[in-house]
């Protein structure tokens, strides 16, 4: 063996050793999960449930830090620039896969600055209509919207939110015109639907569930690719004649792209185990989230496909922010 080759081998193996040693010793200090939304938001609750279980598994305190603002981009950017090796992001679609088509300049680049760890939860977005609206499925809704173009209103939880984009995507698929009325969050949108100000709303199931139980609204479709665990009787949009329709809200853990592969795998394994715990699943479900789990690659592929899909919808909806 030439000395050069041996040198290379030593170098590679020592690199490998130091990496695995690093994964063993990681974390050497408290781990921070940055949540880019305010305390008490659904992303925050998910992060706190995971963080609490992660603490004994990692042997270091896991702290949840809220860095809300600017549609989640402030907290997301903070993680992109974190260099302590112990900062995680509990990310969601908005700042990661939707924002690049909304904002002309973002301080971070999903592909360059982040490495995916695991898809943590998905949240069902449901299309709810007022119970006095004579519509029971997408087909009837489309018929009504075509009969009364521009006369129906829908509430979203915000401009550029997934609830807005899901409806715009549906309008694009069905070639209908329904007027967008943005609200500031799920509860006001639910209130507007309850008070009869709007005809329908795309919003998180947890916001609308009480109104369904009270008989004020009916759910006609789920925006996700598959049916929701919490409302299994509601068919997806895709099932109702629009194959490929998928607008899923998700939360997932990401780390800065310079994080060693071993650390990513260690985190993926630990969080995957947490997501399999029945009490965790119950607590997440109570917060309106359904535990998911994935490999880093699957999560990365999901984000990549969304990055490709949203620009067309955003462009058509005119939701560009600048």
């Amino acid at each position: 063996m030439s000395s050069r080759l041996r040198g290379l081998l030593v170098c590679v193996s020592s690199c490998f050793l130091s990496l695995s040693a690093m994964a063993q010793s990681w974390p050497s200090q408290p781990v921070k999960i940055v949540v880019p939304t305010p305390a008490g938001s659904s992303v925050d609750i998910v992060a706190r449930v995971i963080g609490e279980k992660l603490t004994p598994m990692l042997g270091q305190p896991v702290i949840v830090e809220n860095r809300p603002g600017a549609g989640g981009t402030i907290g997301t950017d903070a993680v992109a620039k974190a260099r302590d090796g112990h900062t995680l992001l509990m990310g969601y679609n908005g700042p990661l896969t939707v924002a690049p088509s909304l904002y002309p300049k973002l301080p971070y680049d999903l592909a360059k600055d982040f490495a995916p760890v695991i898809l943590v939860v998905t949240q069902p977005n449901v299309l709810a209509v007022r119970s006095d609206l004579k519509v029971n499925n997408i087909k009837e809704l489309v018929a009504l919207a075509k009969a009364k173009p521009g006369q129906l209103d829908y509430a979203s939880v915000g401009n550029g939110s997934l609830s807005h984009l899901a409806m715009e995507m549906l309008k694009m698929y069905t070639n209908t015109y329904i007027v967008h009325i943005p609200f500031n969050g799920g509860p006001p949108a639910a209130q507007a639907l309850n008070g009869g100000e709007v005809h329908m709303a795309f919003a998180a199931l947890s916001n609308l569930q009480p109104l369904v139980k009270a008989g004020k609204v009916k759910l006609i479709a789920v925006s996700n690719g598959r049916r929701s665990v919490a409302a299994p009787m509601v068919p997806t949009v895709a099932e109702q004649g629009f194959p490929g329709f998928d607008a899923t809200t998700w939360n997932g853990v990401l780390v800065p792209s310079n994080t060693p592969r071993e650390v990513i795998l260690k985190l993926n394994k630990a969080i995957g185990q947490i997501l399999a715990l029945p009490d965790v699943q119950a607590r997440l479900l109570a917060a309106g989230a359904e535990s998911a789990g994935s490999t880093p690659e699957q999560f990365g592929a999901l984000m990549k496909s969304e990055l490709a899909a949203w620009p067309a919808v955003v462009k058509r909806s005119g939701a560009k922010l600048d």
Binding site: G40, P187, Q191, Q209, P210, L211, K213, A286, A287
Partner: peptide, 22 residues
Amino acid sequence: LGIPPNPVMALMVGAMTIHSIQ
């Protein structure tokens, strides 16, 4: 109504659903 009028109430709704109270 189950509609929280402010963020604090939204957390209370969360606390209820955690205990399976809709």
